[in-house]
Design a protein around this nucleic acid. Structure first.
Lengths: 112, 112
DNA sequence: GTAACTTGTTACCTTTTGGTAACCATGAAA
DNA sequence: TTTCATGGTTACCAAAAGGTAACAAGTTAC
């Protein structure tokens, strides 16, 4: 229960180091983007990210949750149902993620 | 000589995957940010990033160069002098990096 | 002659990250 | 009573990333 955001950045005064610690890596921006306007189940996220393994997806979701970017709601049903959505902090990344996607699309992917 | 940006994203239609491939990792955003308004020598960059090893800094600079984000100018002097600066593509990241820094500062570092 | 300066490179080792495959729980359907 | 569905977990292994320390090279300062 001591996995608050503050812990991640304890000895850090660099805003990039702090931000990259939360949204860096190959998957986290994609996961957050997928959740921007939707609550989604584990299986839905996995289906939209075919190249991530279930193990790593589980790990990334746990980290995002403990960093306060997403929240996890588990229903006591069988078979299990778990829904992920963004917290306010996660939602506040929207402009940055939107700009990143636009930059990548324009500068790296468009075939002119 | 086939290290153009296109190679990085060959099989990729995801703008995040493409963007993260270029500026992801612990160091690259910081390096680009340091170069935003300045041409800097290797030693200057190293001095401002005490926690990166010289080996890794060299590697990161090479990758940034081959991805077209920075350019390297080597003077034929002894001792060597090498200056790094942003390309136009690198400069185009400025708004995103500025927003990231501001977000990290406000959401993660400010002690209210 | 020798040491220092600057920007690397190289060899070697440790840590981190990520993958695969097998397994679990439990209620419903066949 | 066997199977399926969902959202994981675990053990084990491979690959990637990163660190340290030693070395290079040629001119200048001592």
């Amino acid at each position: 229960m001591d996995n608050k955001v503050e812990n991640k950045v304890e000895n850090n005064s660099c805003p990039f180091t702090a931000t990259i610690a939360l949204i860096g890596g190959r998957w986290k921006t994609i996961i957050i983007f997928l959740l921007l306007d939707h609550t989604r189940r584990f299986g839905e996220i996995a289906a939209r990210m075919p190249s991530i393994s279930r193990k790593v997806l589980t790990e990334q979701l746990k980290e995002l949750e403990s960093d306060g970017l997403i929240s996890r709601k588990q229903y006591k049903e069988i078979p299990p149902r778990v829904e992920y959505s963004l917290t306010e902090l996660g939602q506040s990344l929207k402009p940055i993620l939107t700009d990143m996607a636009a930059w990548g699309q324009e500068k790296l992917l468009d075939t002119v």
